[in-house]
């Protein structure tokens, strides 16, 4: 639905206005290495043929791959706090939104929710065991904000004449997969131009091979882990005997 809308805008945008949008990423492939401590990707671009009012409002959204996440609610049962209800939600594993003005000042809440702009406008396919999924989604957004995986920055788009730039923070806990950067130009509350660019996050060679080994040949992986432990334990006795 959202993708279809975006495609429609992309097709219709040149016809709607004379403004043309070009944007690029500082890198289209991010590698998680063994000392990965978070990183940053820069989105930069320019608006060609801007109208006399300047380049308008710019909103940049970065979405990670959608994943099925489980949120559980603890209830006070027999004096203890025990998980008793849960909801399963399909939501992006990473969401970053930056703009050059507060979202509320850029477009109506209808428009924002149509394009899923803003943490309160994310739409999830969900099943909640007690019916109402909204509190679970709110809790998920809270948890992801704490983890640095969901972020809203209403002053995150730096503009200069017709050029703009956004620093996208990539935290250490970033999930692997295909990401999408969407740039929207708003004028008078409407999208006049949009562009979408993908980038990929993957583990580097060694980490990736370990991950694949663990999932493709779990038996050998388990045995290898045990043997490594035993060898290390054994080697340490020689080390200490010599001392």
């Amino acid at each position: 639905m959202r993708t279809a809308l975006l495609a429609l805008v992309l097709l219709a945008a040149p016809a709607l206005a004379e403004e043309n949008l070009t944007s690029m990423l500082s890198q289209d492939y991010l590698q998680i290495t063994s000392n990965f401590n978070g990183s940053e990707i820069t989105v930069f671009g320019a608006v060609e043929n801007p109208s006399e009012h300047g380049i308008g409002n710019i909103v940049v959204v970065v979405r990670g791959p959608d994943t099925l996440m489980t949120v559980r609610r603890k209830d006070h049962i027999a004096g203890m706090w025990i998980n008793s209800a849960r909801a399963k939600l399909w939501l992006p594993s990473y969401y970053f939104i930056a703009s050059n003005a507060p979202l509320g000042a850029i477009a109506s809440s209808d428009t924002l929710s149509r394009y899923e702009l803003g943490l309160s406008n994310l739409r999830a396919d969900m099943v909640a065991s007690d019916g109402d999924g909204a509190p679970y989604q709110a809790a998920l957004v809270r948890a992801e904000q704490r983890a640095g995986l969901y972020r809203e920055n209403p002053a995150g788009v730096e503009t200069q004449n017709t050029a703009f730039r956004v620093h996208v923070p990539i935290p250490a806990a970033v999930p692997r997969g295909s990401y999408n950067v969407e740039v929207y130009i708003f004028r008078d509350g409407n999208v006049v131009s949009a562009q979408s660019t993908p980038f990929y996050v993957d583990q580097s060679g060694f980490e990736r091979r370990l991950f694949e080994f663990a999932h493709d040949k779990p038996l050998y992986y388990g045995v290898a882990t045990v043997l490594m432990g035993i060898l290390l334990g054994w080697a340490s006795t020689f080390f200490f005997r010599r001392k």
Binding site: V71, A139, L140, E144
Partner: peptide, 17 residues
Amino acid sequence: QLVVRPEDVYSLAAGSP
């Protein structure tokens, strides 16, 4: 930890699904 009220009664299951 079991009896004291948790900071957030909702929790995102780690490593889900």
